[in-house]
Amino acid sequence: MALPVYAAGDDGSFPAAEEVGGEVFPAGLQPGDEFPMDVQLFDLEGKELTLGDIASGKPTLLTFFISAAPASVAELSNIEKFAAGKDLNIVFANSDSVGTALLGGPEAQIPETVRTVNIIKAEEKLDTPMYVAPNNVFTPEGLSNRLGFRGLPTSYLIDAEGKVVRTFVGQRDWMDGDLELISAAQQGN
């Protein structure tokens, strides 16, 4: 897991608690919250796009993973098998950047991470579209601070209106009903 890109203007500050959700483990997005479709992604050819380009208007299971955590990578195959045949848009996004201190520094960060995700996709024999989702924990706008996730994999089930239906943290035994697009709260209404 690399430190965020050290760029001109970065004065080396660390964030205050109130800038990152109040504590180390913020509550994060809740069912019913609108999922931001402007999340920056890079595809496996290094082309930049947004989540909206691939998920807008589509019921989606968006799984953030991290290449540095073996359990996080292992869960991708489980999700892919469980979601097979379901009428869902499945997206895997690596919310991490590999270290590049010996590989040319910050300029190499996105290309090297794209290369890493390509290797993971091949090694794990995954068919699901995979992306790189850059993250910077030292800014409130950094992806994991903005969405409030800390443990990966974290999967968001998002409906066609772009609202969070459910959030799944960590490895799990996926069960029938997990990917129902109507939340438990809505079912109770």
């Binding site: 991290i66 993250n135 800390r150």
Partner: peptide, 18 residues
């Protein structure tokens, strides 16, 4: 659980949930 020791500040980074 993770491929490297967390650097200072990485306590905020996503990691294995456990």
């Amino acid at each position: 659980k993770t491929s490297h020791e967390a650097m200072l500040g990485e306590e905020l980074m996503p990691a294995d949930p456990t």
